[in-house]
């Protein structure tokens, strides 16, 4: 029997993996992948919780919108990273430090 707890556990794991990727990876595209994992963890949560919201289905609607917005953000993010690669010839955020105090 798969209960709500299982869903939450899986989503928490995915969220942590995503957060790890964001903090540890040395490649802007891997960071975007991490962000995507974090968003998908939240979407899983929304859909799982939506089982208890049978009148409005707010969670499922939220999940749909979150998918669309995540796709848009990633598209813009990739375009920006491409532009960074043209200027710097690297996409490791640690090597990109023109702006600092």
């Amino acid at each position: 029997m798969i209960t709500l707890t299982h869903f939450l556990l899986v989503s928490a794991c995915i969220f942590c993996i995503g957060l790890y990727a964001v903090l540890a990876k040395r490649n802007a595209i891997m960071i975007l992948v991490g962000i995507e994992l974090m968003i998908n963890a939240s979407i899983l949560n929304f859909v799982a919780f939506s089982r208890y919201d049978k009148t409005n289905y707010g969670g499922q609607i939220f999940a749909l919108f979150a998918i669309v917005l995540a796709a848009a953000a990633v598209a813009v993010g990739l375009a920006i990273i491409l532009n960074v690669y043209r200027q710097f010839k690297t996409i490791n955020p640690q090597n990109i430090h023109e702006l600092k105090d």
Partner: peptide, 21 residues
């Protein structure tokens, strides 16, 4: 400008993802 845009997009997307969770 390219660097500013990248920092902004990455930081902003992470914040949005955390908020979504």
């Amino acid at each position: 400008q390219a660097e500013a845009a990248m920092k902004y997009a990455l930081f902003g997307s992470v914040c949005a993802a955390v908020m979504l969770y």
